[in-house]
Simulated assay, not measured.
Amino acid sequence: MSSTAVRYLTMLRMVPRFPKSITTTELATRLKEQGFSVTMRSIQRDLEKLSTHFPLLVDEATRPFQWSFDRDATIDIIPALDLPAALTFELAKAYLSPMLPPRALSHLKPHFDEAHRTLLRERNPLGQWPDRVRVINRGLGGLRPAIDADVLETVTEALLREYQCKLTYQARNWPEPEEIVIHPFGLIFRDPNVYLIGTIEGREGVRQLVLHRASTGELVEEPVERPEDFDLDLYIHSGAMGILRSDKPIFLKLRCDKPALNHLIEAPLGFDQITSEGDDNTFDITVTVGDTQDLRWWLTAQAVHCDILEPVWLRQEIASTLERGLNRTRME
């Protein structure tokens, strides 16, 4: 492949979908970073030539011109979607639709549409997939708080480019909204909320910011200061997302009823879970878990199906909670 063709493909990948855009100046800078030395005039001519074959838009009211892909442009540029890729997009649509706001999903709509067209063109039974798949969350289905679309776009761009971002944020215990600069480390979707994990400029500790409490967002083109030892998975498994009651982990030993809690065998409560057979009706598990409020909610809900063998203090705490609840339901 000629260097010109490679440059064309590289340039097309740099052009964002409308309403975002990129200028010829920005394209020149990014192409130089990729090893292509080309003038802005040449870039302008290349884009004009490419626009006759691809759905490119140009805003000539600004100088330099701003270029973008049509909002509804599909991804049928090389390579075309095959059946596995098309099915993957159908699955993504099923799982993402309940979690993301409409504006964020709108950016993926052309991809979803092309995937569906691919399945239909192949006359494959998978084309009926959207009618045969539903996503149901455990527990009560509460309404998800609305997230400002501009905030979500700002945060995701900051994460991808490893930049800081500025948010107008109203924490539950703050008297009024504050403008804060965030060093973002990751996003966690924990139904019904979306959490931005990171640090706040000038304040100690890793924070969890609930995105629906942010009203405005702005990208700060400064690199994120991220601790070298921070790992998002380790952060989650430390129990930080479960409303920690203490920093000390709990060595938990349970005797569980069959078949009510058989799912714990296939979906362990922790990395170090050990399962052993009890009698015909029970099995035992031992596992190290975080000392969280979520753990207590779960143990309370499963009280009729499991015995807390260790630690004794936790068994007494759950028993006391159940007793208070029972007394309350008996009140007249």
Rank of each mutant, 00 (worst) to 15 (best):
P16Q: 01
L56W: 15
L96D: 07
I78Y: 15
D272F: 07
L219P: 02
R13W: 06
R255F: 03
L299E: 02
L143S: 09
R123M: 06
K93Y: 13
D280M: 09
L322I: 08
R63C: 06
S3D: 03
S21R: 05
Y235E: 00
L12S: 01
D231V: 03
K49Y: 06
D191W: 10
R226L: 00
R30L: 11
A61Y: 06
L234D: 14
E90K: 15
L87V: 15
T156I: 12
S37H: 11
Q316H: 04
P227H: 01
I243Q: 06
L326Q: 08
I180T: 06
F283R: 15
L295P: 08
D148F: 10
F251Y: 05
T154D: 00
Q44A: 13
Q170N: 04
D291Y: 05
D191P: 09
T329A: 05
H53L: 10
L309I: 14
W298N: 03
R330E: 01
T52H: 13
S2L: 01
C306D: 01
A104F: 14
Y195G: 04
R172Y: 06
A240H: 02
I182E: 04
P227A: 02
L31Y: 05
R315Q: 10
P177T: 09
Q208L: 11
I250N: 10
K248D: 14
I77D: 15
T286G: 08
L309M: 05
M1N: 02
E317V: 02
T62P: 04
D294N: 08
V194E: 00
V151D: 03
M1F: 02
R144A: 09
I78C: 11
A61N: 06
A5Q: 03
G278H: 13
R144H: 06
L56V: 14
L160E: 02
L105G: 03
E266R: 12
P184E: 15
T292P: 08
L100V: 12
L264H: 15
F18W: 15
R134D: 14
F89S: 10
L187N: 02
R190S: 11
I43K: 10
Y95K: 11
R245G: 05
W67M: 12
V58D: 04
L9A: 14
F54T: 13
E225D: 05
R138T: 11
T24E: 03
